[in-house]
Design a protein around this nucleic acid. Structure first.
Length: 543
RNA sequence: GCGGGCGUAACUCAGUGGUAGAGUGCCACCUUGCCAAGGUGGAUGUCGAGGGUUCGAAUCCCUUCGCCCGCUCCA
């Protein structure tokens, strides 16, 4: 990995952000080659997801896949993040259930004790039989007396007076009516070992809760020049919410019909606990996200469709080997609203033999639209005129529903890093032992033109070929021209930059108008007519 | 967050208190006839930053920032 990082720096792929000031933890900049490489990956995603989704193939409904793009703001209304659930826990220590992935405020965790009030509600800590999540003691008491499963656990037969204020309940737990004390588990009084013993409020399983921790997931800033707390806003931790928030506008203004997708790319920000592993976990990073909306009945089919296509797509950009895997989440890993989640994972040098996530494909149900509908008050239901019972006039009655959503969410910076890791090759038998086998579609430099030696008219021919190729391929990427130093050195430089093809003008070119094509991956050479170079590149670069 | 390692040229690194170094790369010129070839010359350093000790600090001490590794975590 160190060698890859050194090459990235040396050749201008990736620099440390603010390096001359000592760097800043969790932030990285792209140099000339890196910026182009990343743009090529972003473009490939855009082309294959928006302009011609899934390479033109049909979805599970037998019709072409349709997606439209949006570009939404990094800063949204603060309530967007309340609805999405990202604000919760910003200021309060939080506990996670590792199994169900649910998170709650540590001071909302209540242990229910069968403790006689005559004991004064005091005494040293005991492990409660059961815990619940409630916002107040009163709510906890209320749930104990009203919820059947809880009543059963405590063998509640009869309930008398209960007081949320004092946290007591008068109940018959089998030995006649007594006052019982309901006590909150104080997270800050527990050591880690004790917390391991507390049963999960969701599953009852012990040892599945994390220690309470302070989270600052979102970057906070202020709108307006006065910067008071009232002007507090957050920088988005994901691009997806911008899509959900504009879902109704897209429906209302573009004539799209469910099923369809909305794509959004751009920067997101997370205060990662531990930025590490080069650009893999950065605090500022770019996402390419699609939210694909469909009818609930078709959602599982679409989930499988996207999961498989996204895996295929990553293979198509060059991650073709064993280092790429699709990992379906286990049932107990899933969010409570999800009917399926998969990760496309890559075996990075720093994760090996394990894998790191490149993209998550999640079945999100209608969770997000439901949340935003509830928090904003806006009606986000879709009126599907192609469903419902047929009417005499040939139309259908229509069906109103909140679409389900499949979310393929890719990390572009992680993608670039995976491409670099996959492309990085060491072959000591070569004159240029270190080189990048980047896919021609992604390579920042598409081709280079060299005169074998800088004399006998070769430079002039090279300049002409270079100009012609630039004219034809400038949209695809850089075409280099280099006549300095030895030919071997020039090949080596291009190898290191990941340039797939070099065209060399030599003595024979003067006689028969042919040039040498030198292939980066094999070092092999073959001759081709100078007029055929453009066609050759067109073929290799695709499009 | 805890523990460990590291930070000297663009890259890899040497330099343990006394003039800032090497290899590679880069640039120029010469040479060139297909793979970092050869020759000559050249440019490039707040020794990560700040403070302290000392006649004198890249070197010793303190603080801090960053990177890497392990644990934790991955919202």
């Amino acid at each position: 990995m160190d060698a890859i990082m050194a090459l990235c720096k040396r050749r201008g792929f990736i620099y440390q952000a603010s390096e001359i000031y000592g760097g800043i933890n969790g932030f990285w900049d792209y140099g000339p080659l890196g910026a182009q490489l990343k743009k090529n990956l972003r473009d490939a995603w855009w082309q294959d997801m928006v302009l011609r989704p899934c390479w033109g193939r049909s979805g599970p409904n037998g019709k072409p896949v349709r997606c439209v793009p949006v570009e939404t703001c990094i800063i949204q209304h603060p309530r967007v993040w309340e609805a999405s659930g990202h604000v919760a826990g910003f200021n309060d220590p939080m506990v996670d259930d590792k199994q169900t992935k649910q998170r709650f405020r540590a001071d909302h965790l209540f242990g229910l004790f069968a403790r006689p009030q005559s004991s004064g509600g005091q005494g040293h800590f005991e492990i409660p039989k059961v815990t619940i999540v409630a916002s107040t003691v009163g709510e906890a008491v209320e749930r104990l007396v009203s919820e059947k499963p809880l009543r059963k656990i405590f063998n509640v037969r009869d309930v008398g007076h209960s007081s949320g204020a004092s946290g007591t309940v008068q109940a018959d737990l089998g030995g006649g009516m007594h006052h019982w004390h309901v006590e909150a588990v104080r997270w800050n009084q527990l050591d880690e070992a004790a917390l391991q013993e507390v049963p999960s409020p969701f599953t009852g399983k012990r040892g599945s809760l994390t220690s309470p921790r302070q989270f600052n997931l979102m970057f906070k800033t202020y709108t307006g020049a006065t910067a008071t707390e009232d002007d507090k806003v957050y920088m988005r931790p994901e691009t997806a919410q911008g899509i959900f928030v504009q879902f109704k506008n897209v429906i209302d203004t573009t004539r799209v019909k469910v099923p369809f997708g909305i794509a959004n790319t751009g920067k997101s920000f997370r205060n990662e606990v531990t930025p590490r592993n080069f650009t893999f976990r950065s605090r500022e990073f770019e996402q390419a996200e699609l939210e694909f909306f469909c009818h609930p009945d078709e959602s599982v089919d679409w989930y499988r469709f996207w999961r498989d296509f996204r895996m295929e797509w990553w293979k198509s950009v060059g991650l073709a080997g064993d280092n790429l895997v699709l990992r379906e989440h286990d049932k107990d890993e899933l969010s409570h609203y999800s009917q399926g989640t998969s990760d496309v994972e890559y075996r990075f040098p720093f994760t090996a033999p394990g894998f790191g996530e490149l993209e998550g494909i999640a079945h999100r149900g209608n969770f997000d639209l439901t949340q935003h509908q509830r928090h904003s008050g806006a009606k986000l239901e879709y009126n599907d005129t192609e469903r419902g019972e047929p009417l005499p006039n040939g139309q259908r009655r229509g069906e109103r529903y909140l679409p389900h959503c499949i979310e393929p969410a890719a990390g572009l910076d992680r993608g670039v890093l995976a491409l670099l890791c996959e492309a990085y090759t060491v072959d000591p038998s070569r004159a240029s032992p270190e080189f990048l086998k980047l896919h021609p579609r992604l390579a920042p430099i598409k081709a280079a033109v060299f005169p074998l030696v800088a004399k006998d008219g070769m430079p002039e021919i090279a300049e002409k070929l270079h100009a012609d190729l630039c004219e034809r391929f400038w949209r695809a990427g850089a075409i280099e021209l280099d006549e300095k130093q030895s030919i071997g050195k020039r090949y080596a430089r291009m190898d290191e930059a990941g340039c797939p093809f070099c065209f060399t003008i030599d003595g024979d070119t003067l006689k028969d108008q042919s040039v040498t094509i030198r292939e980066r991956d094999t070092g092999e050479q073959h001759r081709i007519a100078i007029d055929a170079v453009s066609g050759f590149l067109t073929d290799k670069l695709g499009g």
